[in-house]
Amino acid sequence: MPSDQQARAQAAAITPGRRSGEAETASPADRVRALFGGRRLSPGQRRIAQFLIDHLTEAAFLSITELAERVGVSQPSVTRFASSLGFSGYPALREALQPIALSAVAGSPDSRGERLSNELQEAVDAEIENLASLRRVLADPDRILDVGRELARSVPLTVMGLRISVSLAEYFAYGARRIHPDVRVVTRGGSVAYDALLQSREAGGTWVLAFAMPRHAKETLSAVRAAKAAGLRVALITDQALGSLVDEADVAFTAGTGSRLVFDSYAAPGVLSAAILQAMADADPERTQVRLEKYEQAAEQYDFFLDY
């Protein structure tokens, strides 16, 4: 973890005139973000970080009590936030923020004419970057097609997502059930997950598709290991290219998550999920067509949807 001096040097390094290129035009908000160093912050810590960005000229001179009250968190939360960035405490973080705030107040070249930052648009921009990265990955679709074939052959097919990853697992399972005869969803960890995985393997299943979005739960790692111990292979969709979850998986796909807002957004993992569903559909086109036609017949018979 970087020292206070290293963190301050990081901020100073992007002060105009210190580096060439984009760093020379970095806004005060971007210079504050540099202090965060790309760390994965908790939702509560993101609230503090966003307040510092949005109210820099004021926040850089607040006491820890004042900052905690303004953000709506406890003083220990502010201290832990500063420590997570590598500072000895909040005073050291404030010391790093103040020169940036003063440059903004003085109307330095990097802040003149700067538009009020729109965190919602910035969140969209970050997701666009995630999708662009995914597009480059999908330029070679062979791995997606291979996994799609394996998942299509696994009967039953288990889809697993715990905690925040439940929504992605449910989305994938909803689509997979339209084209696959037996899809089982695991959304609870512990012994419940272990039982479900064992039953899936005993019923003839060979693969699990697991979602692991941040913050990565220990119970997800335990469930992945349980799946491997039961004799199942694991395809993993996550936001990281390295780590213990990736090490345990038989095949892993990386899709970045949006982290500019209090809670993550999942544009790229959603598109990646749809791509794998497409690969599953293409792996057995006859079964896919039959099942889709039956579903449409049922939808019409039982009047599932609104007619516009």
Rank of each mutant, 00 (worst) to 15 (best):
G107Y: 04
P109D: 09
D110N: 11
D110S: 12
D110P: 00
S111Y: 06
R112G: 04
R112P: 04
E114S: 05
R115I: 06
L116P: 03
E119W: 12
Q121A: 11
E122T: 09
E122P: 01
A123K: 03
V124R: 11
V124Q: 10
D125A: 15
D125R: 04
A126N: 07
E127P: 00
E127T: 01
E127N: 13
E129V: 15
E129C: 07
N130L: 05
A132V: 15
S133G: 05
S133C: 09
L134T: 00
L134A: 04
R135D: 12
V137D: 11
D140H: 08
D140F: 07
D140K: 04
D140M: 11
P141I: 15
R143M: 01
R143N: 06
I144F: 03
L145V: 14
L145S: 12
V147H: 04
R149P: 01
R153V: 10
S154D: 00
S154Q: 04
S154C: 08
S154G: 01
S154W: 00
P156M: 12
L157N: 04
T158W: 01
T158Y: 01
T158V: 15
V159T: 08
V159E: 02
M160R: 02
M160G: 05
G161F: 02
G161L: 06
G161A: 08
L162M: 10
I164S: 06
I164Y: 06
V166A: 09
S167N: 10
A169R: 06
F172Q: 06
A173Q: 04
G175V: 03
A176Q: 09
A176V: 14
R178F: 09
I179D: 03
P181K: 10
R184D: 05
V185W: 02
V185L: 14
V186I: 15
R188G: 00
G189N: 08
G189Q: 07
V192G: 08
V192L: 15
A193D: 07
A196P: 05
L197S: 13
L197Q: 09
L197E: 12
S200N: 12
R201P: 00
G204R: 08
G205K: 04
W207S: 03
A210C: 14
A210P: 00
A210S: 09
F211Y: 11
F211N: 04
A212F: 01
P214W: 00
T220K: 06
T220A: 09
S222H: 10
A223L: 02
A223W: 01
R225D: 05
A226Y: 06
A227Q: 10
K228V: 10
K228T: 14
A229C: 10
A229I: 07
A230Q: 09
A230S: 14
G231I: 01
L232Q: 09
L232D: 04
L232V: 03
